[in-house]
Computed example of a mutant assay.
Amino acid sequence: MRRFFEWFFRSRETGAITIAQWPNLVLWIVIVAAVLLWFWPYAGKASIGLTIVVKAGLIIWGVDEILRGVNPWRRCLGAAVVLYVLITLMP
């Protein structure tokens, strides 16, 4: 179990255990848009625009994690976020 933990969570760049990181620019934009959407959920066109920014940003962030994540955990997290957003887009 320890070997799996080491393999799954160890950063391939630094060698440190990496579960979470500071948000990159795309994720900061998603966070700001989500907070604005939380305060003004029914703001008409602005609400639609913020929803698009949040969902598109999460997909972009998730794909970036899948492609460039520092360990398998980050790649799985990116895949889970993309899958979640795509499922919530379905009618």
Rank of each mutant, 00 (worst) to 15 (best):
Y42K: 05
S11G: 09
G15E: 01
G49L: 13
L50T: 08
V26K: 11
F8W: 07
R12H: 10
S47E: 10
W28Q: 12
E6S: 07
A20W: 15
N24P: 08
R10C: 02
I31R: 10
G15M: 02
L36C: 10
A34Q: 05
F8C: 00
L50N: 09
F9R: 05
L25D: 14
I19S: 08
T14F: 04
G44L: 07
T14R: 03
V30Q: 04
I31L: 15
A43E: 07
N24F: 10
K55M: 09
V35H: 00
I48S: 13
F39A: 00
A43R: 02
L50S: 07
A16W: 10
I48D: 15
V54Q: 04
I52E: 07
N24C: 10
W38V: 03
N24Y: 11
G57I: 05
V26R: 13
L25I: 14
I19H: 02
L50C: 09
L50W: 07
W7G: 00
F8R: 01
R12N: 08
K55C: 08
Q21G: 04
W28N: 15
Y42L: 11
W22R: 13
I19Y: 05
A43C: 03
I31V: 14
A34W: 06
W38G: 05
W22D: 11
T14A: 05
L25G: 13
G49R: 07
I17R: 08
T51R: 13
S11K: 03
A43G: 08
W40R: 03
P41F: 00
W7M: 00
V32W: 08
Y42T: 09
F9V: 01
R10S: 04
R12I: 06
A20S: 14
A16Y: 09
T14C: 06
Q21C: 09
R12Y: 05
I52P: 03
G44D: 11
L25T: 15
P41E: 00
L36E: 04
F9I: 03
A33F: 09
T18D: 08
L50E: 09
V26I: 15
P41W: 00
I31T: 15
A56T: 10
I29R: 14
F39S: 00
N24G: 15
S11L: 03
V54E: 08
I52M: 10
A46Y: 06
G15H: 01
I17V: 14
G44P: 05
S47L: 03
A56L: 13
G57Q: 03
L25Q: 13
A34C: 04
A46M: 14
V53N: 08
W40I: 01
A20N: 13
V30N: 05
A34P: 02
V32T: 11
W40A: 09
W40M: 04
V26Y: 07
W7D: 01
L58I: 01
V53R: 06
I29T: 15
I52D: 06
P41H: 01
R10Y: 02
F8K: 01
L50D: 07
V32D: 05
A16Q: 15
L36M: 10
